[in-house]
Structure formats: C-alpha cells, structure tokens
C-alpha cells in the first residue's frame, strides 16, 4: 500500500471543508446574535429577576468549556429523541456559546451610552421601546461593531472544536488527510494557514474599526 501525499487534491478538500467552517461561523453569529441580543436586553432590563436570570446565563456559559456545551447539545438532542446529523448539534452549541459572550459584549455597549441619553429621551415622552429603537440602540450598535468583529474571530477558531464530535469542518478535514498521508506537520500547518487567512483580516478589521471609533478622542 502506498501512502497518498499532501498535494493539490488534499488542498482542494481543505478548501471545501473551509466552507463548512464558515457556514458554522455564520450560523453561530446569526443564532447567537439573536439569542445574545435578547439576553443583553434582559441583562439591562428594569426588572431585577430578569436581570439576575440573564446575568446567571452569561456567567454559566462563560464558566464552562465550549467542548462541554458541544457534548451536552450532542447527547442532549439525541436524548430528547432527535436523530440529527452533527451539523445540528454543532450549530446549536456554537449558537449557545456565541450568545453568552455576545450578550455580555452588547450589555457593555448598551450601558456605555451616556445616561443623559436615557433621560433626554424619557423627557420627550418616549416609551422604553422607542428609547431603544431611536436613541439607545443606534448609538450602542456603533460602539459594538469592533468587539463584535473581534469576537467573530473567536467563533471561527472555536468551530474547530466541533471536529471532536465528527463534524467535518476544516480541522477535521486536516485530521482525515493526516490519517491518509501521515504528513502531520505539513497538513496541520496548511490547516492553520487557512484559519489564519480567514481570521487575520477580521482581526485587522476589528482593530481598524476600533481606531476609527476613537478617532475623535485624544489620549
């Protein structure tokens, strides 16, 4: 038996599986974004029990490994009687993971809007919904852009963990190729390079946005 070598076919396979990594990242950011937004609003709610519930959710998600969220969704879904492909468990766990962190980032952004903005809009007889819609969220969104893009980098990297339950994304594809070619150094460097190509521009974008946001303020 001859071993395959790491060549054009293998790089093609890596590129193909990179699409799954990106799809999973998009799912996590959309799902986690929606859930995280709801939690962020709950975290800044006027009702104390709601605030505490949201804070506990954030503390728990940030206090457990992503791998455990993954295993619990994987086995939890099958316990609940669903026979689903790994993509669902992977998507669900990445969504839950992202929601816990995005909620905390966005809470910070909502609270970074000066208190006077709340008071001014209240004196204009706006309802709380109107305050959020027209005054608070537009400003919070501007502040939230750099850290959110920065967090997207973490999500891209952490989707690699889903390879452990057998979801074939970029890291898993690297393992599969390594099993066939046994050139681990070359294969995993190529995998790392592909992650870098996706993550580095995002990191730089986050940095650029951050700088632009603080362009007016002098230090």
């Amino acid at each position: 038996m001859t071993l395959k070598t790491f060549g054009a076919d293998q790089i093609g396979f890596l590129l193909l599986s990179l699409q799954w990594t990106i799809l999973l990242t998009v799912i996590a950011l959309i799902g986690g974004g929606l859930l995280g937004f709801a939690v962020a609003l709950a975290r800044t709610s006027q009702l104390k029990p709601v605030r505490i519930a949201a804070a506990s959710y954030i503390q728990i998600i940030q206090g457990i490994p992503v791998l455990m969220i993954l295993f619990l969704s994987y086995y939890g879904l099958s316990l609940a009687g669903f026979e689903l492909p790994p993509l669902f468990a992977a998507g669900a766990s990445m969504t839950i993971y992202a929601s816990g962190y995005l909620a905390e980032i966005w809470r910070g952004c909502i609270q970074a809007v000066p208190k006077q903005q709340w008071e001014a809009s209240e004196s204009l007889a706006m309802t709380r919904l109107q305050q959020y819609r027209y005054v608070i969220l537009p400003q919070a969104m501007r502040i939230s852009l750099p850290p959110t893009v920065g967090f997207a980098v973490q999500v891209v990297k952490n989707t690699s963990i889903t390879s452990i339950i057998g979801f074939v994304e970029l890291a898993r594809a690297g393992q599969l190729i390594n099993n066939a070619t046994f050139q681990p150094f070359r294969v995993f460097l190529a995998v790392a390079a592909l992650y870098f190509v996706v993550c580095y521009p995002l990191s730089q974008l986050s940095r650029l946005l951050e700088r632009r946001l603080h362009a007016g303020s002098s230090r």
Binding site: S160, I161, F185, F188, V191, A192, C199
Partner: peptide
C-alpha cells in the same frame, strides 16, 4: 499567528507534527 489560529490545530501541530 497564535491569536488567529485555533488552539486545537496548535495542539495537533505540537503533538502530531
């Protein structure tokens, strides 16, 4: 380089590479 690549892949490089 470290901050823009996954920890899992870094482990693979150390352990298998």
């Amino acid at each position: 380089i470290i901050r823009n690549t996954p920890f899992l892949v870094q482990l693979f490089i150390v352990y298998f590479g």
